[in-house]
Design a protein around this nucleic acid. Sequence first.
DNA 1: TTGATAAAACCTGTCGGACAGGTTGAATTG
DNA 2: CAATTCAACCTGTCCGACAGGTTTTATCAA
Lengths: 240, 240
Amino acid sequence: MSLAPVEEEQFAGGNLVSTAIGAITQHIRTNELGPGDRLPSEATLSKELSVSRSVVREAFRSLATMRLIDLNVGKRATVAQLDHGAMSLMIEHGVHTAQININQVYDVRRTIEMRTSTLAALRRTDAEARIILDHARAMETNFADADKVMESDLAFHLEIARASKNPIFSIIVGAFQGVSRQTWPIGWRSRASDAERHAMNRIHIDLAEAILAGDPQAASQLMARHFDESAKALLAAGIA
Amino acid sequence: MSLAPVEEEQFAGGNLVSTAIGAITQHIRTNELGPGDRLPSEATLSKELSVSRSVVREAFRSLATMRLIDLNVGKRATVAQLDHGAMSLMIEHGVHTAQININQVYDVRRTIEMRTSTLAALRRTDAEARIILDHARAMETNFADADKVMESDLAFHLEIARASKNPIFSIIVGAFQGVSRQTWPIGWRSRASDAERHAMNRIHIDLAEAILAGDPQAASQLMARHFDESAKALLAAGIA
DNA sequence: TTGATAAAACCTGTCGGACAGGTTGAATTG
DNA sequence: CAATTCAACCTGTCCGACAGGTTTTATCAA
């Protein structure tokens, strides 16, 4: 329950905040805290670590930004549920600072999502299969409204990741949503005709049906085809 | 160059720190800053955003913890290079709070690394191929010292990711290193005999040679076999 | 003019204190 | 015993201060 003084922490990163972060994560582990469990107050940690409240605050805030903990006014900090927020920021930062390009994002997504569609076909509940199919159909229903099509598309991919029952996949797929929102309209516009756009929606529906039918092979193949086609569309738009 | 006052920021997350974080990332984007470029000082941002220095500090610290920026005493903050630090913390947090289990980690790694080995076989430089092979051989050379074997193993996988020339893969593979360090000894011990351990090393060498030979198919197959075998070893140890 | 040196200005890390609200739990009261 | 009230906590934000480390400027000598 008690935390070791700063001097004994192995998490040293030169500054006190790093050690505080180490102490807090250590606290979570040694006490086997889970999502929702409450952490010590800033004042308590401040005393136990012999550092100022500012240091503890910066540590807390850092962990909150990474979504490891939740902060609320008046309430104590709590252990947070996994969330793609931190990874989203990271990916977007990489793209905006020219350290990552769109093709690389597509390659990762293709790799990951071929797997999520396989797993979804094997593990999805009936309810999940229905939701996935609904999203696919919504894309066709709202064909005229590109924004709605995009949101359904994103929801479709995320729901497949959820149905894979592996939270890491959900996080990764979720992390790319921000970037995808920026490139999606380009791909949509760059398709030569409405026929091609309908064809894309068709693949989504076929994929949803493969998952509903519990056919992992077909699901995976369709996902691959979807990405290959999208990459081609993006290439046509000059994103290479 | 100038930052909008807090009131106009769309990044609102209820607290001022979130808006400051938004303003800073926005600044990086609109000014197209890249790794190494300097950011405004805390005092400057404090004035421009009309918030206290504490708020700016928490924002900076948060971004530094996520490795989006680098902080140094006396120096101004700079844009950072991509790094798996943040994702590592996230994954470890997920594992320690029972939101992620080891099988899920293995599934993601298998999925990702089948791809990195494919790409490495296609894109590796000769120097990279040699380094990968060296790591594989080091595992056999240091057979008696499990710790050294492990470090070579980890370096082997990370180098393959690097050779894939997609930084996102490097980040993801790197992010799992912390967790792997904890499970690796279990897998090593759980193998029935030294013969099995040598067999595992053999796969690594074969894989390195497939990458050197530029055979993506073989590389990918060997990586898959490696993970299937490791999963079996872990299963034998009761990690399921 | 130029190049080295010293000083000033700037910057971050940490501390302490202060106050406005929001939250929680305990004492009080009906 | 239940509802209410109040005191104790707690977080969000601000301000001021000071110890070092860093960068720029100014000075001075060659």
